[in-house]
Amino acid sequence: MPMKAILLTLPLMLGGATQLMAASLDALQGAWTAEGTSCTDTFKTVNGHSEFKDRGASLNSGIIVSGKKITGANAVCTAGRVREEKDRLTISMTCADTIMFSDMSVSFRIIDKDSFERFDPNFSDVLTTYHRCSP
C-alpha cells in the first residue's frame, strides 16, 4: 500500500479503535455495587449523579464508571486499551491511590444491562458480581 494511502486511512483506523473502546465501556457506565451490598448504603445522589456516601469506608464495594475513569473505594483508574472477546471485556488500566500508582488488567463479563462479573484474567474462577445502581 502506498504511503499516501496509509496516511489517509490511519485516522479512520484510529477513529475506529476509539469508537470500539467507547462502545465497550458504554455498557459499564454508571454506579455499581457488589452483590450482597445495597446501592443506598454505598451511594448518594447529588445533582442527578451518583457519588460515594463514604468512599473511604472499609466495607465500600462500589465502583463508578464515568467515561474512561473507574473510581473505587481505594483508587481511581483510567482505562486504556480494551479487548473484547465474545461477552468479555479486558481493560488495561492505570490506577492511582493517595501514594502510589500501578498498571493492571481486569476482565468483565457482561451478564445483562444491569449486571456484570469482574474477574482476574489469570484466575477467571475468582469473581465478583456487580449490579447497576440508579442515580
Rank of each mutant, 00 (worst) to 15 (best):
M1D: 08
M3N: 13
M3E: 14
P11S: 05
M13C: 09
L14F: 10
G15F: 01
Q19M: 15
L20N: 07
L20W: 08
M21D: 10
M21A: 13
A23N: 09
D26L: 09
G30E: 03
A31H: 05
W32S: 02
T33N: 09
A34C: 00
D41E: 15
D41S: 15
K44H: 01
N47A: 11
G48K: 08
K53N: 08
K53S: 02
K53A: 05
D54Q: 13
G56W: 06
A57E: 06
A57L: 00
L59I: 00
S61I: 00
I64A: 08
S66V: 01
K68T: 13
K69Q: 12
T71M: 10
A73P: 05
N74A: 08
G80I: 03
G80P: 02
V82H: 09
E85H: 12
K86G: 03
D87M: 05
L89F: 01
T94R: 11
C95D: 07
A96G: 12
T98C: 01
T98L: 15
F101W: 09
D103M: 03
V106F: 01
I110C: 02
I111R: 09
I111W: 01
S115H: 10
E117M: 12
F119C: 04
S124N: 11
V126A: 04
V126T: 09
T128H: 02
T129Q: 08
C133D: 07
